[in-house]
Every structure is written in structure tokens, then in C-alpha cells.
Simulated scan of single mutants.
Amino acid sequence: MTDDTSTDDTARTTIEVDRQVWRQVRAEAVGEGKNVSKKLEEILIEYFEDDDA
């Protein structure tokens, strides 16, 4: 179901990651008071912004 009134430009996906990587991301997210999805989004944005330089 989609929300046609949303102006948010996001996509949802499912990924598989190495268990150790997941633990690291989860630990960082918890340490920063964030949920894991937001932390993963930050990591991906940082990665691709660095790639553009």
C-alpha cells in the first residue's frame, strides 16, 4: 500500500548482511540512540557522497 500524500523520496528494501557487520551497525546505532535503519541510511549516504568527490 502506498501513501499518495507523502512527499518523502524514499525506497524500502531488504538486504542480507554479514552477521558481524550487522552487529557493528546495530551497536553504533544503539550508541547514538538511533534505529538501525536510520544508521544504515547514514552509512550509505556517506559512502556515496564520498564516492562523488
Results as ranks from 00 to 15, higher is better:
residue 52 D to S: 09
residue 50 D to Q: 11
residue 48 F to I: 02
residue 48 F to C: 03
residue 23 R to L: 11
residue 13 T to P: 03
residue 39 K to E: 12
residue 45 I to S: 05
residue 34 K to R: 15
residue 52 D to I: 05
residue 16 E to K: 12
residue 36 V to A: 14
residue 26 R to A: 13
residue 15 I to T: 05
residue 15 I to A: 15
residue 13 T to V: 02
residue 39 K to S: 02
residue 51 D to K: 11
residue 32 E to A: 08
residue 12 R to V: 00
residue 41 E to S: 06
residue 20 Q to A: 12
residue 47 Y to G: 03
residue 52 D to G: 03
residue 45 I to H: 08
residue 15 I to S: 06
residue 41 E to A: 10
residue 43 I to G: 10
residue 7 T to R: 13
residue 26 R to C: 05
residue 46 E to D: 15
residue 19 R to Y: 01
residue 50 D to C: 00
residue 48 F to T: 03
residue 19 R to W: 01
residue 20 Q to C: 01
residue 17 V to W: 08
residue 10 T to L: 07
residue 47 Y to Q: 10
residue 15 I to Q: 09
residue 53 A to H: 04
residue 22 W to F: 08
residue 48 F to G: 01
residue 51 D to H: 09
residue 44 L to M: 13
residue 40 L to A: 15
residue 9 D to L: 15
residue 37 S to I: 00
residue 6 S to P: 04
residue 25 V to A: 13
residue 5 T to N: 14
residue 17 V to I: 15
residue 5 T to G: 05
residue 44 L to T: 01
residue 47 Y to A: 07
residue 29 A to V: 00
residue 6 S to T: 07
residue 48 F to P: 03
residue 46 E to H: 12
residue 24 Q to F: 02
residue 12 R to T: 00
residue 6 S to N: 09
residue 42 E to H: 08
residue 4 D to I: 01
residue 7 T to A: 05
residue 12 R to A: 09
residue 12 R to F: 06
residue 30 V to E: 15
residue 50 D to S: 10
residue 37 S to M: 08
residue 2 T to A: 14
residue 26 R to N: 13
residue 52 D to R: 13
residue 4 D to L: 13
residue 17 V to Q: 12
residue 37 S to L: 07
residue 11 A to Q: 11
residue 31 G to Y: 06
residue 43 I to E: 08
residue 37 S to F: 04
residue 43 I to H: 12
residue 42 E to W: 03
residue 23 R to T: 04
residue 2 T to Y: 07
residue 21 V to Q: 04
residue 45 I to W: 04
residue 13 T to A: 14
